[in-house]
Structures are given as structure tokens and as C-alpha cells.
Design a protein around this nucleic acid. Sequence first.
DNA 1: TTGACGCGTCGGATATTTCCGACGTATCAA
DNA 2: TTGATACGTCGGAAATATCCGACGCGTCAA
Lengths: 105, 105
Amino acid sequence: MLEPDVFSALANPVRREILMQLRKGPRAVNDLASGFDLGRPAVSEHLQVLRKARLVREEPRGRERYYHLDPRPLSEVDDWLKAFTHYWKQRLAALGDVLDEEARK
Amino acid sequence: MLEPDVFSALANPVRREILMQLRKGPRAVNDLASGFDLGRPAVSEHLQVLRKARLVREEPRGRERYYHLDPRPLSEVDDWLKAFTHYWKQRLAALGDVLDEEARK
DNA sequence: TTGACGCGTCGGATATTTCCGACGTATCAA
DNA sequence: TTGATACGTCGGAAATATCCGACGCGTCAA
């Protein structure tokens, strides 16, 4: 793990799911781990990867550690994808689907 | 490689660079490989991963194989990121930078 | 103070990734 | 046809990823 890059952090489905969970608010490690078919050490090690990629931040609270989402490094992925957006957006025809979906929010 | 998912395909910097190269048009394998500090078999195996993730398509042309970019599976990553976009976009203040950059094209 | 809890991390097992040289196949040029 | 070229893939080496049980440390509740 010499280079804690964001792309590698996202390569694992467990880590992606952890990030999804953390959207709803900070969570303690045991609480997170109970949602997976994994032992606590494994989850703890996934959190270490996410920490090194700066995608999560830890907040000690008594004997627990609450992990917070920090989505900012995801912008690196988003920026990278922008180089390709042009290509696949062409195929969506100018139906305004995207705008409609935005307006519906 | 039981599950050729797009996230894993993007985890490797060589594969990301291959996709970048292919934006400019289809390329033969040796042509691609010459741009990396890697042997041809390695590049060929990276192309296999990209093929299984359906990010590239091969077009035999005589004894060469031209690889074409197919960026459509990238929309899966884009969609996943959308679940987080809201979070980091909040921090970019409403300066309209994005719109300006779009207008400049 | 004591025992239970929450957590990180280590040692080690296993699986996967990444790379290469070697080989076989198909295609080209002469 | 013959030799060179372009490529995929295999066997194996080395590195990395993933997971677990065990251990140690700090914190809490009694």
C-alpha cells in the first residue's frame, strides 16, 4: 500500500459499501462491521485503506471510533471521468432526460 | 478475475492510461505497448481486463488488432459517484466555475 | 480495582494481481 | 514457400490484497 490512491480504494465492493453507509452519518466500527459478512479486523483494515486515501476521517468517542465520510478525494475520480463524459453522453440523444431528472429533485 | 467489474479495471494506472490513449482513436497493441515501460504481454493482459469489463473492443485488421474505446461502462462509476456529488459540490461555493468552463469550450 | 467492551494491528494463510519469457497461431512481404 | 511480424496465452515468479485469530491498549461500568 505504498500509494493510497482513490481508484484502488474504490476497487473493493466492501469499501464502496462502507462509503455508502457513511453517507447517512458517522458510524462506529462494530456497528459498521455488523452489516457485513466479515470479521471486525477485516473491516478495520478496509477502514485503514479508506483512511490512507483520505476518504474517511476518524473521531474517537470514548472507547469507540466514529468514522466520518470525506468525499472530497472522489473529485479526482470525477475529474478523470470528465475526460470521457463527452463520449458516452453523445449516445444519450438530446432527450433532456438528465435535466428532467435534475428538475424532479 | 471472476467478476470483471469496472471499478477494478480502473484501479490500475496503466489501464487508466490505456483508456486515455484510446480516446484519440483506435490503436494496435504494439503501438500502445511502446508508450509504457512494460513488455507486450503485460499490456496484452491489461487489455484483456479492459475487454472483460467491456471498456474496449477489438477490431482485427490483418495481423494487428486495433483496440477501440467503449466508454459506456464508465457510466456505472459516474452513477455511483452521483450518490456523493452532493457532498463535495457543497464546498465549491456557487461561483459558477463549472458553467464558465463549459461555456469556454 | 476489575472485568467486559471497542478498537488497531500483527503473524500467517490463501487468493489475486502483475509481470515476464517462451511458445503457438495467423498474417504479411518477398 | 519462407522468414519476419503481431498477437494471445500459458507457466511461473514476485508482489499485493484479503481475511482471520490472537494479542495489547485504552475506556467504561460496577
